[in-house]
Amino acid sequence: MPTIVVEVMPKPELLDPAGKATAGALAKQGHSAFSAVRIGKRFELTVEGEVTDAVLAEAQRLAEEFLSNQVIEDVVAVKVA
């Protein structure tokens, strides 16, 4: 069955404490090539049947209204896997 992937990231201007802690851990392990980490979310929506334009539009709407909170997050991708 087809899958729609939705990716959500915390807004760039907001502090991402989980990402910051991970970046700190990388630095402590000596991985100096990476200066920052930001952690977001990936949703995989399994679709019953075909991915029509209507289904994709519904996924986009859900991504913006439920899967993310637009006050603190951005939807960065809604795509067919």
């Binding site: 907001l14 502090l15 404490p17 989980a18 910051k20 802690a21 006050v71 603190i72």
Partner: peptide, 17 residues
Amino acid sequence: LVESQLLPGGLIRNDHG
């Protein structure tokens, strides 16, 4: 209440983690 949009804004992880 914030997620229901009865009040505006959002609540995020404490800045100190």
